Computed example of a mutant assay.
Amino acid sequence: MKKHAVSYAIIRFQPHVETEEFANIGIVLVAPRISYLDFRLETRRLGRLTSFFDSVEATTIRSVLKSYNLELKRIRDLAGHNGSGQSRFEFELSDNAEHLFHALTKDREGVIRFSEIRFAMTDSPKAKLDELFDYYVRQNFAGSVYREGLLEKHVRGILKLRDIGRNLKPMEFTDGLYSAKFPFVEIVQDKPRKVLKPIYLGQDEPSRILEHGNKWLFTINRLKEKMPPDVVVAVEGPKDSAKRRQAFHEAVEQFRVNNIKVVDGRNENELIGAMER
């Protein structure tokens, strides 16, 4: 399959020029030889923006992105995009895809900025655009396993700061057929007294949130005869999407129904309170 040389830039939201802080919100990509120009812009999952730039009203952020999305569509249409690729017609010099790309990504003042232009080779410009968007904006490399690791690291930091972590050790429990390792087990007189397990429940799909919650619910229930009765799960859930939040609340409720304590893994007071009882 023929390879295409593409140029792309990361679209960034930077409301405070003074601090130079920004968040990646999209990708614009051009394949000059086939006159392909397209973009992807995040307009739905705005929790990361609203929490990071908490001094900017959520309605303002939505309005800016909505307006810019329309502007990008207008520019894409000028290049002749037809939804599945590029229409082939004679371009005016000022309207060809490569010229529009460079005009669009030129450094200028405003809350929407661009990274430096980058280059790649690809069989499919559209697939490459989706891949870049998933990586730089949706951060698909930061999957649930990675995020659960970050939550565990955060919890460990809090426990050490409060001088609680010294009596906590990782421990594996098994019934002979099934086993699982828990990162924080309080040991008192050489016996496990309490178990704390950070669980990330902010997966992309509601079904995956429920599946991950059910996995650990099954694990704890299966091994409950081998574990101390005092089990705490420190959870982190999604910050946007009503359906994902609903799935998160259902997963949390299942833990509680099964007499498993649930605390907010990002709330220091809840964590400390659960471990000091």
Rank of each mutant, 00 (worst) to 15 (best):
His249Tyr: 14
Leu150Phe: 07
Glu90Val: 12
Arg33Thr: 06
Asp54Lys: 12
Ala127Gly: 00
Thr43Glu: 03
Asp240Ile: 06
Gly83Tyr: 13
Val185Arg: 13
Leu100Met: 07
Asn214Thr: 03
Ile10Gly: 02
Ser179Lys: 15
Ile209Ala: 14
Arg108Phe: 02
Arg113Ile: 07
Glu268Leu: 09
Asp130Thr: 10
His16Ser: 06
Gly47Ala: 15
Lys224His: 04
Glu211Trp: 08
Asp77Tyr: 11
Glu116Val: 05
Ala79Pro: 03
Gly83Leu: 10
Lys239Leu: 07
Ile272Ser: 01
Thr50Gly: 01
Asp123Gly: 03
Ser179Ala: 14
Met275Arg: 05
Phe119Trp: 14
His154Trp: 15
Ala31Pro: 00
Gly176Ala: 07
Lys128Ala: 09
Met1Trp: 01
Tyr68Gly: 02
Arg113Glu: 06
Pro192Cys: 09
Leu70Tyr: 09
Lys3Arg: 14
Leu70Lys: 14
Arg48Phe: 10
Leu41Phe: 03
Glu92Gly: 00
Ile25Val: 11
Arg277Lys: 10
Ala23His: 05
Gln14Cys: 12
Phe248Gln: 04
Arg138Val: 14
Ser63Gln: 12
Ser7Gln: 09
Asp175His: 04
Pro238Cys: 07
Gly80Ala: 14
Lys66Ser: 12
Ala5Pro: 00
Ile272Thr: 07
Lys197Ala: 01
Val231Trp: 07
Leu159Phe: 14
Arg162Trp: 12
Phe173Ala: 02
Gln254Ile: 01
Arg256Tyr: 04
Ala23Glu: 09
Asn267Lys: 13
Ser207Trp: 15
Ala31Lys: 06
Lys197Leu: 12
Ile112Glu: 05
Gly85His: 14
Ala247Thr: 03
Ala97Glu: 05
Glu90Thr: 11
Glu250Trp: 09
Ser7Gly: 01
Gly47Cys: 08
Ser7Ala: 05
Glu42Gln: 15
Asp38Glu: 13
Lys153Ala: 15
Val195Ala: 04
Ser63Ala: 09
Ser144Val: 13
Ala180Lys: 15
Phe22Ile: 02
Thr43Ala: 03
Arg166Leu: 04
Ala247Gly: 11
Ser67Asn: 11
Arg62Thr: 04
His102Gly: 01
Tyr178Lys: 15
Ile117Asp: 01
Val263Ser: 03
Asn258Pro: 03
Arg44Tyr: 05
Ile209Cys: 08
Pro15Leu: 14
Asn69Tyr: 10
Val195Thr: 02
Tyr8Glu: 02
Leu46Ala: 06
Val231Leu: 05
Tyr136Met: 02
His81Gly: 08
Arg62Asp: 02
Asp77Trp: 06
Ile158Asn: 07
Gly83Ala: 08
Thr105Asp: 00
Asp38Ala: 11
Ser87Cys: 04
Asn267His: 12
Ile117Pro: 00
Ile260Trp: 09
Glu71Ser: 11
Asp190Lys: 14
Ala5Gln: 14
Asn258Ile: 04
Lys153His: 12
Ser207Val: 08
His249Leu: 13
Phe53Thr: 10
Gly265Glu: 06
Phe255Met: 11
Asp240Tyr: 08
Ala120Cys: 01
Asn221Arg: 08
Tyr200Lys: 07
Glu186Trp: 13
Lys191Leu: 12
Leu210Gln: 11
Phe22Ala: 08
Val145Pro: 00
Arg33Asp: 11
